[in-house]
Simulated scan of single mutants.
Amino acid sequence: MNKRVALSWSGGKDSCMALDVLKGKGIEVACFITTVPREIGRTFGHGEKMSLVKLQGEALNIPVEFISCTFEDYTLSFETVLKRIKEEYGLDGIAFGDLYLEGHREWGEKVAESANLEAIYPLWGKKEDALQALQTFIESGYQAVVIRVREDILDDSWLGKRLDFTFLDDIKMKEICPMGESGEYHTFVFDGPLFNKKIVLTQPEIISLETTKKLEFLHYELKQKETLNG
């Protein structure tokens, strides 16, 4: 019997590639898990609107389980919801899109253990593999846009950039992780091989969130994907 897992979902390139790898291994992703601290009313880390993450779930035909929490009780809330959805979805494990940060993995393994679930890291590798990981994403057929940058590292001219080979060349020139593993930048995936519909993002504006700049889309909708005839 195939494994059934929940996937920690940010809406960005890492979690999307984790989904792609899991599916390729025949592992069923039963649901996404996305944390929403009440202090900000947006997704943790990426600062994205819940409505856009819901749209991704709809486009991928995977339900999204939002974890309402505070920064103070973040871990406890995660563990509590994880235990509930383990029973609800019949889960064997929980997967994360982390690449190489040991502290992130230790946390994920801890919360998985609290629910007696396997912690799965389909993208795990070494820091020096990050550039190749970015190239793999670009070649995968998924479409993503930069939606958030740390002001002390990247200016707001990076907002709205598509992850393509031009982006790959540009990011090589910066002394940062090419995948933005330490939060240098965040992305939003809006189309790709597993998407049944694509998300059309329009009316962008730049807003400030803490020490970052965020690209906010005022209008977004699902659209049917074009099919090739013949």
Rank of each mutant, 00 (worst) to 15 (best):
S114Y: 02
L60G: 06
E128I: 07
N116K: 15
G90Q: 11
G93D: 06
S77T: 06
V111P: 02
G108K: 04
K110I: 01
A115R: 01
A119S: 14
I67N: 04
K127I: 11
A130F: 00
G93Q: 13
Y89I: 09
L55W: 01
L117T: 06
L82S: 07
G125I: 15
Y100K: 02
P63E: 09
A119I: 14
E72Y: 04
Y100R: 02
L123F: 12
P63Q: 09
L82I: 10
N61P: 00
S77G: 03
H104L: 13
Q56F: 08
F66E: 05
R84K: 15
L55H: 03
G93F: 13
L99F: 08
D98C: 13
A130G: 10
Q132P: 00
G108Y: 07
I85L: 05
E106F: 10
H104R: 07
R84V: 01
I120F: 08
L60Q: 06
W124D: 07
A59L: 11
W124C: 08
L52Y: 11
S114K: 12
E79I: 09
T70F: 05
I85Q: 03
L52V: 15
Q132K: 14
S114I: 02
Y74M: 12
I120V: 15
E72W: 01
L131Y: 09
F71K: 11
A133D: 09
P63W: 13
L117M: 06
P122W: 08
G93N: 08
F96S: 05
D73W: 01
E58K: 15
L55T: 10
N116A: 13
Q132M: 09
C69A: 08
D73M: 03
L117K: 02
I85V: 10
A59V: 08
V64C: 01
I67V: 15
K126E: 13
M50Q: 14
D92H: 14
T70Q: 03
L91Y: 08
E102A: 11
E58C: 03
L82D: 05
P63H: 13
K54E: 15
K54H: 12
V53F: 03
D73K: 14
I62L: 04
L99M: 11
F96E: 05
R84Y: 03
I120A: 11
S51D: 15
